[in-house]
C-alpha cells in the first residue's frame, strides 16, 4: 500500500482532554485486561493545558525497524509494525529511536509493544470509544485537509 494512503490515528489536541478512555480500551483490546499501563496509545498531559494522545504513526522507512539489532521488527505493507516476539529481547533500541516514544517495553515481559491498529477488528477501538471525537482514523492527507479547513475558518471568522 502506498504510504500516503495509509490511515493513521491522529489526535486533535483542542478536543483531547486527557480522559484516558482510549488507554483503558486499548489495554483490553491488546491484552484482555484493564490496565492503562499496557495501552499502546498514550495520553500525554503537560500541565496545565496540553493534552494529546499519541500512538504509532506508521512512518515510511520507520526508524524503529532500522534500529532493531535482532531483526525483530518488520513493517507490513499496510504500515503496521509487526514484532517477532521470538527475536525481540527487549533491548529498547527501537524505543529510543522512535521520535514519538510510542513503541514501548511491555510491563511484564521483556518485549516491546506497539499499536497494531486493532487489526483483528478492522479499525481502531480507541477511535471508536473516544467520547470527544478527538481521535480520528484518517490518512495523513485527510488530517492535513481538516487542519487547513480549521485554520481557514479561524482566519476568516477573525476577520
Amino acid at each position: 500500500m502506498e504510504s500516503r494512503l495509509r490511515k493513521v490515528i491522529v489526535c486533535d489536541p483542542d478536543k483531547c482532554n486527557g480522559c484516558r478512555i482510549c488507554e483503558y480500551v486499548c489495554s483490553y483490546v491488546s491484552e484482555g485486561v484493564m490496565n492503562i499501563k499496557k495501552s499502546r496509545i498514550r495520553v500525554v498531559r503537560i500541565e496545565p493545558f496540553l493534552n494529546i494522545a499519541v500512538t504509532c504513526r506508521k512512518c515510511e522507512d520507520p526508524v524503529c525497524v532500522k534500529a532493531c539489532p535482532r531483526d525483530a521488527l518488520k513493517q507490513k505493507p499496510n504500515g503496521i509494525i509487526a514484532i517477532d516476539e521470538n527475536k525481540c529481547n527487549g533491548c529498547g533500541w527501537c524505543v529510543e529511536a522512535c521520535p514519538f516514544g510510542v513503541i514501548r517495553l511491555h510491563l511484564g515481559r521483556r518485549k516491546v509493544i506497539v499499536c497494531d491498529y486493532c487489526e483483528k477488528y478492522g479499525s481502531p477501538k480507541c477511535v471508536e470509544y473516544c467520547p470527544k471525537e478527538a481521535l480520528k482514523y484518517v490518512t495523513v492527507d485527510q488530517a492535513g485537509r481538516e487542519l487547513s479547513k480549521k485554520a481557514v475558518k479561524i482566519l476568516l471568522e477573525e476577520r
Binding site: 482532554n17 486527557g18 484516558r20 483503558y24 496545565p48 493545558f49 493534552n51 467520547p131 470527544k132
Partner: peptide, 14 residues
C-alpha cells in the same frame, strides 16, 4: 483556556 477530564470520564467538566 482548556477543558479537561478526570480519568475515564466522557463528560469533561473541568
Amino acid at each position: 483556556k482548556k477543558i479537561i477530564a478526570c480519568a475515564g470520564c466522557p463528560i469533561a467538566c473541568d
